[in-house]
Design a binder for these strands. Structure first.
Lengths: 156, 156
DNA sequence: GTGCTTGCAAAGAATTTGCATAATT
DNA sequence: AATTATGCAAATTCTTTGCAAGCAC
C-alpha cells in the first residue's frame, strides 16, 4: 500500500479510563476492567463481544460504560446494516472506517481528498452541512487469502 | 444551489410492485397497499411509520414486504446511529444520502467526484474495495428556517 | 387445488431501566 | 456519610417466526 495522501491511523496513547474521569465519573475496578479490555482489543467490537470477554462484569455495566465512552468522544459507534453496532476507539478526531464484508474487521483511515470533496459539496447541497460519515467496504487481505464467504451486509 | 457536478435525484418512474413481481412474488392487495404507501411518501421512512400509516396491514407483512423490496434492490436500508433503520426508494443505482440532523429528512444525491475519490483510494487501501457508503448530515433549509433543535445523532 | 400470503401472537435479539446492594470519594 | 456504581432481573424496542386461515395463480 502506498503512503501518499492516505494516513493510516496509529495508536496515539488513548486512555479510556482518563476519558471517563474527565467526565467526572469514578475510577472503579469494573470500569478499569472494561476499558482495559477495549484497549487490548486491537479493533472494533460489539457490546455483546465485550460481555462475553468479561463474564465477571454485568451486561448493564458494559452497556453503560460504552455509552459513557461514546458520550465522551473516546469511542465511535458505527452502525452496521444488519445487527448490533460496533465500536472503535476514536484515536483521531475525524476519520472514516473500512469494514471487511467478510470478517467484519474494522480499520480507520483519513484521507485529505475526502475532506476536500466535502468542502466542495458544501456549496451545492441544500442546507448546512453539519457532518458526514463514510464507510468503505472491503475484503481484507486475510479474507482474500482464505477466500472466505461473506457474512456482513454491504450497501453498494 | 448550483447544478454543476451534483446531480439531484429525480423520480424515475420506480414501480415497487413490479419489483416484487419480478422476483416471482404474487401481486396481492396487501402488497399493493404497502408499496403504494411507500411511493406516495416522498422521502425516507421507518418500518414503524409504515405500520402506523397502514393499520389495516399486519406488522409482520410490513416487515416482510420491506425485506423483499430491499432484497430486490428497490429500497435501500440506511442505518441510523440511534434507532430503527430508515428506508428510501433506490431511484438510481448508486447514490448517497443527506440526512437532516434535525428533522431526519433524507435526500439522495450522486456526485462524480465522490466516485472518483473512491477510485483513487482503491490503490491505497489494503484489500479489495467492494463498496462504500456515505452520508452527509445537514440541517435542511426548512429546519434552518424554524431553527429547530436536533433530534438525530450525528457522527461528525 | 396447491402453494404462497397474511395476521396474530409468541419468540428473539439488543438494549435500557428499576432497585437493592456495594464501592468510591 | 453521601453519593455514585453495580448486577440482577424485568421492561422496552425492534424484528422475526410458527402456524392456521385466506388468497393468487
Amino acid at each position: 500500500m502506498a503512503a501518499s495522501a492516505l494516513s493510516k491511523v496509529e495508536s496515539v496513547g488513548v486512555n479510556l479510563s482518563n476519558a471517563l474521569e474527565d467526565r467526572g465519573l469514578r475510577r472503579t475496578a469494573t470500569r478499569m476492567t472494561v476499558t482495559g479490555r477495549i484497549e487490548q482489543l486491537n479493533g472494533a467490537f460489539t457490546a455483546e463481544q465485550l460481555c462475553r470477554d468479561l463474564p465477571g462484569v454485568g451486561r448493564a455495566t458494559v452497556y453503560r460504560t460504552i455509552r459513557h465512552l461514546v458520550d465522551a468522544g473516546a469511542l465511535c459507534k458505527l452502525p452496521i446494516l444488519d445487527g448490533a453496532p460496533m465500536y472503535s476507539i476514536a484515536r483521531i478526531e475525524h476519520h472514516h472506517h473500512t469494514i471487511c464484508s467478510s470478517c467484519g474487521a474494522v480499520g480507520e483511515f483519513r484521507h485529505s481528498t475526502v475532506e476536500r470533496v466535502m468542502r466542495s459539496l458544501a456549496k451545492e447541497i441544500d442546507g448546512d452541512i453539519v457532518g458526514h460519515r463514510m464507510e468503505i467496504f472491503i475484503t481484507c487481505n486475510s479474507c482474500l487469502a482464505e477466500s472466505a464467504t461473506g457474512k456482513f451486509s454491504v450497501h453498494v
